[in-house]
């Protein structure tokens, strides 16, 4: 198993405004034990990914993206283009080359 986990992260629907207006990010995650030594997590799930995003991608107003240990209600999460509610939401275990998309529903209509 490779050391790092490659993912594509996408932001849209206005969520990208919190990320320097960049919609597409190709990222490589180190081993979760290295990145979060104090956490009990053995593998990367969406929960740990959100911590990583906060520390590495999120540029402004974190309260508009995160609430508690999850995303702010009203931000949709798609795992490989399907609703994360089908895959256990925060508990979903990330796989190599997964595509994770965050779409805000909270912007203009």
């Amino acid at each position: 198993m490779p050391e790092t986990l490659k993912l594509q992260i996408n932001f849209s629907g206005g969520a990208e405004l919190l990320f320097d207006k960049i919609k597409k990010h190709n990222i490589e995650l180190p081993s979760v034990r290295k990145y979060l030594p104090d956490s009990k997590a053995e593998k990367w799930t969406i929960r740990e990914l959100l911590v990583w995003i906060k520390g590495n991608l999120l540029k402004e107003r974190p309260e508009l993206f995160l609430q508690g240990d999850s995303v702010r209600p009203g931000i949709l999460v798609l795992i490989n283009d399907a609703d994360w509610e089908l895959f256990g939401e925060l508990e979903y275990e990330l796989q190599q080359n997964d595509n994770i998309m965050f779409i805000s529903t909270l912007h203009g209509g």
């Binding site: 849209s12 629907g13 206005g14 405004l17 949709l76 779409i103 529903t105 912007h107």
Partner: peptide
Amino acid sequence: YEKEIVMYAHYKKLVYFSTEC
């Protein structure tokens, strides 16, 4: 529902504008 509107737009690849006033 708003969620379904956004998912519909996403899957249909509709172009819309999303920015705060």
